[in-house]
Nucleic acid binder design. Structure first.
Length: 805
RNA sequence: UGGCCCGUCGUCUAAUGGCAGGACACCGGUCUUUGGAACCGGCGGUGGUGGUUCGAAUCCACCCGGGCCAGCCA
C-alpha cells in the first residue's frame, strides 16, 4: 500500500497499477505481486532502462509484500559478459533499489528449460528442424503470405527426442539443427510460425562456461524464467506486444508451477538524444564522446558522472508516467526534475566563469572584509554558511558588464551601480581597454554603507552579481555540457534523409565547452567531493569524479539555471539556436524543421465504399429491403453469416414473444447486436456465448417495452454475456426495472437540484455540461433505475425554475 | 499489403458512459541581495465522419495518422 492510509484509488493510476489492483481484489496470484527487471548483460543501462527499473521496483515498494527480482536474461553466450553484470548491478543500486536475495540468472534455469523442451517434444508440440537458417527464413513467408511447413515438421517424437538429445550432447555443429515449436505456419502473427526455441552455439557462456552448446531463445526462455520465479506481472516494452501470444503459448503448454502475465508499456524516448546500445557504441568507438560515462550520454553512468542525482531520475520517471501510447518526452521535463531536486540540496557558492578584473577605488591596501554567507536562500530549509572574503581586487563575469546594454539589462554598465552578492554596491567609474579595444579592467567605486544593507539614501540597485576575490579565488576548469544532438529526434531526422548511419550528422558540435580559467571561491576546497553546488546565477555543478577531485578542481555543469533573461533578450544566443529545430507534428507525422520540407499532405479523397463480396452485398441488400435496416448496419451484419443468422433468429424470436412491429424490432435487435454486444463478447464467437437468440430477443423486448432502460439493458446484457440466464430474472435480481413514473422521480430530482446550488448557478450561467452531472446524481440515487428521458425532462424543468431571491 | 497495438493542451499524462483535470513548457503578475526558488493568474486539447445513448474522450462502423512484426538478437 502507498504511504498514505487512504484506500488505493481505482483511477488516476497507470493501467498496470489498475490491473494489479483488480488482480488483488479478485484474489489472483494468492495476493502476491512479483515483478522483475530483466536486463541482458550486453551493454550499459540508460535512462530508458531507468523508467523500467523505477516502474518495476517502484511497484514492489508500493504493494505490501511485493518484490522485484533483478534477473539477468543471459541466454546468448556470444554477446554477454560479467563486466556488464557488475555495471548493471551498480546502476540499479545507484538508482536506489535493492533486490535483496532475489538476484537471478536465466542461465541458472538451463536445466529446467531443457526439460520443458523435452516435454514439448513428447507432447508433439516441438520438433527438430535440420534445415539451414536461410531455408527456414524463406519458408517463414511474409506479413501478407503464410509460411511453408518444414519437411521435418512431422518427425516422430522419438526421433525428435533423439536428435534434441544429440544436439545437447555436442554431436552437431552450429546451425545444423534447431528445435522449433510446432504451432502454425499460417498464423498472421509471424512469431507463431513455428518459432525457433533452441539453437546450437558452441560458445563459452560467461557463467555456464562450456557446459552447454545449445541455448534457448528469448521467446521460449523469458516466459519460463518468469514462471519459475513466480513473477506475476511481467512488464516489458511495446515492441514485445506481438510476442505475448507466444509467451502465453509457452506457459500454457509446459507444466510450469505458475502462470505469469505479460503487459507492455511505452518505452522512454527523450528529445535530443538517442536510446540504443548500437548508437551509443558508435559514438564511443568513433570518439564523439569520451566513453560510456561521458556526461553527455544518456547512460546511467553518464548521468551519474554528470552529477544528476538518482532522486531526480526517479522523480522524472514518475512525472513521465506509464502508458501504452508511443511518446517522446520533452527534455525540459528532465531538466525540471533535476533542478527541482538540486535546488533543495545544492550549496550556493560564487564562481566566475569568464573573469573580468574589477579594482575598487579607494579600498585600503591589504584590507580584507569577511561576511558569513549562507549556503542556502531563505526558501530552502537548510542550514549552513561559510566566510566569504572581499578585497579591493575582484573578478566578475564578463557577461555581467556591458558598455552597450540591451533594454532591461540589470547588471554593470559604465556609470551604473550593481550589488556584489553579500558585499557592497559598486559603481563603474572607468573602463580600461587594451590596444584592440577590448575591456581589460573596470575601476569601480564602492559604497561602504551598503555592506549587508540597502543604500541608506533609499536609491534602488536593481542588479546583484557574483564575484570572487582575486587574492582568494581558486582557479578551476569548468565543463559546460549541452544536448548531444541539434535535432529533437535524431533517428527520425536521419531516417527522413534516407540514411541509417547519418544520425551523427545531427551531433551538436557545441555539446561540450571547456573553460580552463574559471575562478571559484575557496570554500569549495573543504567540501566532500560529491557536493552539489549552485554557482549562483550560473547553474548547478559538481566536481568531476574522475578528473576533477585533485588539486585543481574540474567542475561539470549538471544543468543550467532557468534563465528568463535569456528569453527576454531573445535571439542570437547559442541556446536559442539549438532549441529552434523542435520536432513538430504535421499532418500527424513527426517532422523536423529544416530537415524535411513541411508540406501539408493533400486531403485523402472522400471515402469510397469498400468493395464487397457479392454474397455479402446480396445479404446486405436482403437485410435492408426485408427489414428496413440502415445500410451501414445491414452491411455489418451481412459481413458475417453467423451474425446475420443470429439477427434473423432473434427477430423471429421477438415476434414469437409477442412483438408487434417487425421492423421496429429488427432495428432494435440490429442496434443491440452491433453497438452493445461486441465489447461484451470479448473476442468470442456468437456460438460460444452462454445465451442464444431467445434470451437476446427477450432482452431487446424488455428495453423496447420500456421495462428496462437502455442503460439497464446494457447491465443485464453484461451479466448475460458472462453467465447466461434469463434477462428478466437478471433484471429483477439486479433491481433494474425502470422507473418512469414522474411522481416518483420528481422528488428525487428536486432533491438533487436543492443539494447543489452552486452547480445550479453554473448551469444557469451556461455551463450545460453540468446536465451530465445532474443526470449522474439522479441515476446514482435511483441506482440506475430512473427512466432517463423522464428524469431529464424533470431536471430541465427544475433547473429552469427562476432563482429564488 | 496481413495481423496486433496506439491517437486527449506544444509535450507527458488523468478522466473506465455523467463537470475534459494535473505536470512540464509558454505568457503575465507578486516577492526577491540569485534575471534562481516560491506564490498567484492566464493560454491551450479529445485526429475525422457517421452511429448507439437522456448523455460519448470513453461503446460501434468507416476513414486518416503513427508504431511493432518476416534474427538461430533481446
Amino acid at each position: 500500500m502507498g504511504p498514505d492510509s487512504t484506500p488505493t484509488p481505482t483511477s488516476g493510476r497507470d493501467f498496470v497499477r489498475q490491473i494489479i489492483d483488480r488482480d488483488l481484489v479478485a484474489g489472483r496470484n494468492a495476493g502476491r505481486v512479483i515483478t522483475r527487471f530483466p536486463p541482458e548483460p550486453n551493454g550499459f543501462l540508460h535512462i530508458g532502462h531507468a523508467k523500467s527499473i523505477v516502474f518495476n521496483f517502484g511497484l514492489a515498494a508500493e504493494y505490501a509484500g511485493a518484490r522485484c527480482h533483478l534477473r539477468f536474461d543471459d541466454t546468448n553466450p556470444t554477446t554477454e559478459d560479467v563486466r556488464y553484470v557488475h555495471a548493471i548491478k551498480e546502476d540499479v543500486r545507484w538508482l536506489g533499489y535493492d533486490w535483496g536475495e532475489h538476484l537471478y540468472f536465466a542461465s541458472d534455469y538451463f536445466d529446467e528449460m531443457y526439460a520443458f523442451a523435452e516435454e514439448l517434444i513428447r507432447k508433439g508440440l516441438a520438433y527438430v528442424d535440420s534445415q539451414s537458417e536461410e531455408a527456414i527464413r524463406e519458408q517463414r513467408g511474409t506479413v501478407t503470405e503464410s509460411g511453408l511447413e518444414s519437411p521435418h515438421r512431422q518427425r516422430a517424437v522419438e526421433e525428435n527426442l533423439r536428435l534434441f538429445r544429440e544436439m545437447k550432447a555436442r554431436r552437431y555443429r552450429d546451425g545444423e539443427h534447431v528445435l522449433r515449436a510446432k504451432i502454425d505456419m499460417a498464423s498472421a502473427n509471424m512469431l507463431m510460425r513455428d518459432p525457433v526455441l533452441y539453437r546450437i552455439r558452441h560458445a563459452d557462456h560467461y557463467r555456464t562456461g562450456g557446459t552447454w552448446c545449445i541455448y534457448p531463445l528469448y521467446d521460449y526462455a523469458h516466459p519460463l524464467e518468469d514462471a519459475l520465479e513466480g513473477v506475476t506481472h511481467s512488464l516489458c516494452t511495446l515492441e514485445f506486444a506481438n510476442n505475448r501470444e507466444l509467451y502465453d503459448w509457452v506457459v500454457e503448454n509446459v507444466s510450469v508451477p505458475h502462470r505469469p502475465r505479460q503487459y507492455e508499456f511505452a518505452r522512454l524516448s527523450l528529445d535530443y538524444t538517442v536510446m540504443s546500445k548500437r548508437r551509443f557504441l558508435r559514438l564511443v568507438e568513433e570518439g564523439d564522446v569520451a566513453g560510456w560515462d561521458d556526461p553527455r550520454m544518456p547512460t546511467l553512468a553518464g548521468l551519474r558522472r554528470r552529477g544528476i542525482t538518482p532522486e531526480a531520475i526517479r522523480e522524472f520517471c514518475e512525472m513521465v508516467g506509464v502508458a501504452r501510447a508511443d511518446s517522446r518526452v520533452d527534455l525540459a521535463k528532465l531538466e525540471y526534475a533535476i533542478r527541482d531536486n538540486l535546488n533543495r540540496q545544492a550549496l550556493r557558492v560564487l564562481a566566475v566563469l569568464r573573469p573580468l578584473k574589477v579594482t575598487l577605488i579607494g579600498w585600503p591596501t591589504g584590507r580584507v572584509e569577511t561576511s558569513e554567507a549562507p549556503y542556502f536562500p531563505r526558501d530552502v530549509p537548510q542550514e549552513g554558511s561559510r566566510p566569504l572574503a572581499c578585497t579591493g581586487a575582484l573578478y566578475i563575469d564578463r557577461d555581467d558588464f556591458s558598455e552597450s546594454p540591451p533594454p532591461g539589462f540589470r547588471r554593470l554598465v559604465p556609470g551604473g551601480e550593481v550589488r556584489l552578492r553579500y558585499a557592497h554596491v559598486i559603481r563603474c567609474e572607468e573602463v580600461l581597454k587594451d590596444a584592440s579595444g577590448s575591456v581589460t579592467e573596470l575601476r569601480c567605486s564602492y559604497d561602504p554603507a551598503t555592506w549587508g544593507q540597502d543604500p541608506v539614501d533609499g536609491r534602488s540597485v536593481k542588479g546583484t552579481i557574483q564575484w570572487v576575490s582575486a587574492a582568494h579565488a581558486v582557479p578551476c576548469a569548468v565543463r559546460l555540457y549541452d544536448r548531444l544532438f541539434t535535432v529533437s529526434d535524431p533517428e527520425a531526422a536521419a531516417a527522413s534523409r534516407g540514411g541509417d548511419s547519418i544520425f551523427k550528422d545531427f551531433l551538436n558540435p557545441a555539446s561540450l565547452e571547456i573553460i580552463e580559467d574559471a575562478l571559484v571561491e575557496p570554500s569549495v576546497l573543504n567540501d566532500p567531493g560529491d557536493t552539489r553546488y549552485q554557482f549562483e546565477r550560473v547553474g548547478y555543478f559538481w566536481r568531476d569524479p574522475v578528473d576533477g577531485r585533485g588539486d585543481r578542481p574540474v567542475f561539470n555543469r549538471i544543468v543550467t539555471l532557468r534563465d528568463t533573461w535569456a528569453k527576454v533578450k531573445g535571439g542570437g544566443t547559442r541556446k536559442d539556436a539549438l532549441s529552434s529545430p523542435r520536432g513538430r507534428t504535421v499532418g500527424g507525422k513527426r517532422t523536423v524543421k529544416g530537415v524535411e520540407a513541411v508540406t501539408r499532405r493533400p486531403r485523402a479523397p472522400a471515402a469510397t465504399p469498400p468493395r464487397l463480396e457479392p454474397e455479402v452485398r446480396e445479404r446486405s441488400e436482403e437485410l435492408r429491403s426485408r427489414w428496413g435496416l440502415d445500410p451501414a448496419d445491414a452491411e455489418i451484419l451481412a459481413r458475417d453469416p453467423s451474425l446475420s443468422g443470429f439477427f434473423l433468429a432473434t427477430v423471429s424470436e421477438c415476434m414469437r414473444q409477442g412483438a408487434s412491429d417487425e421492423r421496429r424490432s429488427a432495428a432494435a435487435v440490429a442496434n443491440w447486436m452491433i453497438n452493445a454486444l461486441p465489447p461484451l463478447a470479448g473476442g468470442r464467437e456468437l456460438a460460444q456465448l452462454p445465451f442464444g437468440a431467445p434470451e437476446f430477443a427477450a432482452l431487446v423486448s424488455l428495453v423496447e417495452g420500456g421495462v428496462l432502460s437502455g442503460r439497464g439493458g446494457a447491465a443485464v446484457l453484461e451479466v448475460l454475456a458472462r453467465e447466461g440466464g434469463s434477462p428478466s430474472e437478471i433484471m429483477e435480481r439486479l433491481g433494474l426495472r425502470q422507473v418512469s413514473d414522474a411522481d416518483a422521480l420528481s422528488p428525487i430530482v428536486k432533491d438533487v437540484v436543492r443539494a447543489h446550488p452552486a452547480k445550479v448557478e453554473e448551469y444557469r450561467a451556461g455551463k450545460e455540461g453540468l446536465m451530465g452531472f445532474f443526470m449522474g446524481q439522479v441515476m446514482q440515487r435511483t441506482e440506475g433505475r430512473a427512466d432517463p428521458k423522464v428524469a431529464r425532462e424533470l431536471l430541465e424543468q427544475a433547473l429552469a425554475e427562476p432563482v429564488q431571491r
